[in-house]
Simulated scan of single mutants.
Amino acid sequence: MRAHFKRRNMAELDNLEYYIKFPNPNYNYTQTTNGDSDFVFVIDENKVPVILLFGWAGCQDKYLSKYSQIYEERGLITLRYTAPVKCLFWKRYQMIQIGQKIVKLLIDLNFESHPIVVHCFSNGGAFLYQNFSSALSKSPKPLQIKGVIVDSAPGKRRLGSLYRAISNIIGGTFWYNLPMSILITIVCSIMWIYEILSSLLKPGCSIQSDPFEILKKEKNTWPQHFIYSKADVLIPYQDIEYFADYRENVGVNVTRLCYEDSPHVKHYTHNKESYVNSVCNFINKCLSNGRN
């Protein structure tokens, strides 16, 4: 399939950089993919589903684009965005505005009548989803969110997990990585404490305390699909199962795919067939059940 590709870095959106891809206008939505009819999405061709992909902290788009290809090859619109690392760790207040900009972007693109599914990765993507979800409640036009796929997230805040995440992002030699990772972990920890104290002293303040707890109690009840692994060393699978259980107990339609040995945000790389089956089946279910 050939698709139109467009990359934007627009001043009117305050340099919110994103990547969007549209299917070929002549794409045949009745065709099968690899002979598997499960991959045929029954859709209104005037309202092609939009998949929002929110990358993990430090994610390069060349890696996130491999996931968007799953959907592009099946005739769906994809929009990819990864929040800047500085916004995820030490300028976290800016995430509120980013969430609002993404909602505005979707409305500017006239996507409010299209079914939308979010696919977010790790805590970075989940944190972005949290702010996007919050911004939806203030949107001048309602968006048709049909479901959320959560890959390798969410996880509770722990110093060890924070250190490992920062170390992975920084990379480089051991002697450079170690002191920089420790320093940034200490700074982020101090900011966590400040956020917690601010939320306790000033209830309702805009400072974001704990994304895990905020997402756990979010009011939106569209279906959620969790993909995770028992071998994940960044986010313990027990965190994800606890979160999924909680959401299921408050009435959310929850499905799960747990692997035994795939690394953090690399489940697709290690288990392509089952991963693709899982996300496509979930989207088919979201499109057919008519829930908002």
Rank of each mutant, 00 (worst) to 15 (best):
C286S: 04
V85C: 08
Y242G: 05
I145P: 00
V279Y: 00
I145M: 12
H114N: 15
I196F: 10
W192T: 10
K47E: 10
R158H: 06
P49L: 01
A153W: 00
A231N: 11
Y19E: 11
G147K: 00
D38L: 10
Y71C: 01
E17H: 07
M95L: 15
I116A: 03
Y176K: 14
R7V: 13
L106K: 01
N284L: 11
R164Y: 10
V250L: 13
P23D: 02
L109Q: 13
E248T: 05
L159H: 11
E273G: 09
N281T: 14
G160L: 13
R8N: 12
A11I: 13
K101S: 11
G290E: 12
R8E: 13
E213A: 07
S152C: 11
Q144M: 10
L88S: 02
G160M: 11
C188Y: 05
I283K: 01
V250W: 02
K138T: 10
E273C: 07
G58V: 03
N277V: 04
I235H: 00
G35T: 02
L200E: 09
W192K: 07
G171F: 08
H114I: 02
F41K: 04
Q31V: 06
K230A: 12
S229E: 02
E218W: 08
F5K: 14
L197H: 09
E213N: 06
S122G: 08
I184F: 15
S206Q: 14
H4N: 11
F132V: 05
F243P: 02
D239I: 04
A57L: 15
I186Q: 09
C120H: 03
K219Q: 12
S199N: 13
T82V: 08
D36V: 11
S199F: 01
K146F: 06
V250A: 03
G125R: 01
L16W: 01
P203K: 07
F132W: 08
S134H: 07
W90Q: 04
E45L: 04
L106I: 03
H119N: 12
S198N: 12
P263C: 07
Q130W: 11
Y237K: 07
D245F: 06
E273D: 12
Q31W: 10
D38S: 14
E17G: 05
P203S: 05
V103G: 01
I190S: 09
T32I: 04
K21C: 09
A244S: 14
